[in-house]
Design a protein around this nucleic acid. Structure first.
Length: 594
RNA sequence: GGGGCUGUAGUUCAGACGGUUAGAACGCCGGCCUGUCACGCCGGAGGUCGCGGGUUCGAUCCCCGUCGGCCCCGCCA
């Protein structure tokens, strides 16, 4: 359904075959002005679509003369009779391609400067220019459809969650800085000089407090802010679908999320989504894909070869194993021919960039023997086991990492993605959605020299692991889950700690003193002590999901007004300096740079 | 903080050992054209070669710096 905006106007999308012979007034933009001398065609675009308008010199009216003055992207009002196009001149690319409007009168509602770039041009215009004139780029078919898709997506979310009894509740944007996690955007307070609000990295604490308040089912499509460096899939402000539920277990959150996506896919894509999604254990994801957000659209799986090379003639392998490291590999099918010496040099550079020390390799030749690289250090027995474990066949190449388990997984995981891209192994049309579960609760931060949360400090530990929370914290698993689509993390959540004493134990392990905890999260801890129900939730990255569903390469293309990699908005020119008076009012003085 | 690619007409790009007047396509302006739909044909205008400095008789080209854009690493509980 469309809305014409006024009774005096008809939309192009409302013009159908039955309208032929009747007179209408349409308003919109001039696209593709085509002057044939005695006959002028334009495509008139409004928000519902496009229809062709004809101006004919032989028609006894003023419209033809006026039409000579039209240019691309002028805003006009046209009145005329709808008619079927002459046989043979239909345009099957347009919905209204069988029809046209014979103009009786036309008036120019507004003119348009010469465009800085052509709308819908097939060549890629520099993104800075497109962002500066974002309103023009948003007129293009591609961006326009992305933004409308986003709106439809949000409707589908609200529709589903509303029916499931969720309340849409807003949480503050001006809130408290929390030192854990990513860097905060700070907002100075005029009324409390020297004090700052922070824009929320997510509504995490507030949504938990809403559970304490007894709302039981909360959701919000909400902006989140993180002052970190940007990427194609990261903007300083981005949108989450944030949810929280009381009295749920992990399987409830997972099932509800699957139903949510089923419902959305049906509504916005008209597609059936197969549920339940595949569930991958964190350890399995790390050991076979080398990533906690595995792209499972292609194989190139990691194999553990430590057993095979126990008595290797290679010092590197033996030394690594004796130090508690591992020997792991991936096998690239067909790599014998397609990977050259030069390619291997390139891959070595890539591996080093990812933290690997080197890149051992061997090719499997046509006759099944090993060739090149480290082949001369591999004996017949090792060779047979190697080919069995890696699935290596004649014509393949096998890459090795001898390092700690963590580094080997990470390096091979990244190499896996690099090879898949380089050699086009990723099927384009596929959508692979899966859960990763059983994340560790903690990890050791070399940088901070302490144990930190993998997820966040309110994540519940797995019940079975509670007994060695203090003795072996790094082997404790958590009640958390990530949703992964085509190798992108598109959502994550956990069951939360709803017991103040357990929360205190966690803080202790994280080396957060009771005093610190009180200063940082006191309001949440207080709330938990007043009858907090068991609860848990999840948050989805809307921008990333839309990017993947629209087959875009950057979330900028699904956001109406995105920022550049330097977090600059070329349209509004934000951020900008402010006046001395504004600073004074806030009690802020700027430091001069050297 | 680091690595890679990049900046020439409004747009997308080409260009030259360092040497007269820096090209093409699209767009724009003017003209012609009655069935086009990325209309066609003819003509024309349009450039601080990102910015600053250096080398040079001479720099868009070489060198140094700087600013911007994109991709990536670090970072993003």
């Amino acid at each position: 359904m469309t809305y014409s905006g006024a009774s005096s106007r008809t939309l192009s999308g409302e013009i159908s075959e039955e309208a032929a012979g009747r007179e209408y007034t349409l308003k919109g933009w001039v696209m593709h002005f085509r002057d044939h001398g005695g006959l002028i065609f334009i495509d008139l675009r409004d928000y519902s679509g496009i229809i062709q308008v004809v101006f004919d010199e032989n028609e006894k009216n003023e419209s033809f003369k006026s039409a000579k003055k039209l240019k691309n992207e002028y805003v006009i009002s046209v009145t005329g009779v709808v008619r079927r196009r002459p046989a043979g001149t239909e345009n099957s690319n347009l919905k209204t391609g069988n029809l046209e409007i014979l103009a009786a009168s036309v008036s120019i509602l507004n003119t348009c400067e010469t465009l800085p770039f052509q709308i819908d041009e097939e060549t890629d215009v520099n993104e800075l220019t497109r962002l500066k004139y974002r309103y023009l780029d948003l007129r293009s078919k591609r961006l326009r459809e992305n933004i409308i898709f986003r709106s439809d997506f949000a409707h589908a979310v609200r529709d589903f969650l509303g029916k499931k009894g969720f309340y849409d509740i807003e949480t503050p944007f001006l809130t408290k800085s929390t030192p854990e996690g990513s860097r905060d955007f700070l907002v100075p307070s005029r009324l409390n000089q020297g004090h700052f609000y922070a824009l929320p990295q997510s509504p995490q604490l507030f949504k938990q407090i809403l559970m304490v308040s007894g709302f039981e089912r909360y959701y919000q499509i909400v902006r989140c802010f993180r002052d970190e460096d940007l990427r194609a899939d990261r903007q300083p402000e981005f949108t989450q679908l944030d949810m929280e539920m009381s009295f749920v277990e992990m399987k409830d959150v997972i099932r509800l999320s699957e139903e949510l996506f089923e419902s959305i896919f049906k509504k916005v894509l008209g597609a059936e989504l197969a549920t339940p999604f595949r569930v991958l254990d964190y350890d399995e994801a790390m050991n076979t894909y080398g990533s906690d957000k595995p792209d499972t659209r292609f194989n190139l799986l990691i194999a553990n070869l430590s057993d095979i090379f126990k008595d290797s003639s290679m010092n590197l392998f033996r030394d690594t194993l004796s130090k508690g490291g591992v020997i792991k590999s991936i096998c690239l099918p067909g790599g014998y021919d397609i990977v050259s010496r030069k390619d291997i040099d390139e891959l070595l550079a890539v591996v080093k960039d990812f933290g690997g020390k080197g890149l051992a390799w061997t090719k499997v030749s046509r006759d099944g023997s090993l060739e090149g690289g480290i082949s001369k250090f591999i004996n017949a027995g090792e060779k047979n086991s190697l080919l069995t474990k890696t699935g290596g066949k004649p014509g393949d190449i096998i890459f090795f990492q001898a390092d700690s388990n963590k580094t080997s997984n990470n390096v091979l995981g990244r190499l896996r993605l690099y090879l898949a891209k380089k050699y086009n192994l990723i099927p384009g049309e596929k959508l692979d959605m899966l859960w990763v579960v059983n994340f560790p609760l903690f990890e050791y931060s070399e940088e901070e020299k302490r144990i930190v949360s993998v997820h966040h400090p309110f994540t519940a530990p797995a019940m079975n692991d509670l007994k060695y929370l203090e003795t072996e914290p790094l082997s404790v698993k958590s009640e958390s889950y990530d949703l992964v689509l085509n190798g992108e993390e598109i959502g994550g959540g956990s069951l939360r700690i709803h017991d103040a004493s357990l929360q205190e134990r966690i803080f202790k392990i994280l080396s957060i003193s009771p005093e610190d905890a009180k200063v940082k999260f006191g309001f949440l801890l207080d709330a938990l002590s007043f009858g907090a129900p068991p609860h848990g939730g999840i948050a989805f990255g809307i921008d990333r999901i839309l990017m993947l569903l629209r087959n875009e390469h950057s979330i900028r293309d699904v956001i109406a007004f995105p920022k550049t990699q330097k977090a600059y908005c070329p349209l509004s020119e934000a951020p900008s300096g402010v006046t001395e008076a504004q600073l004074k009012e806030l009690g802020i003085r700027l430091i001069k740079k050297d």
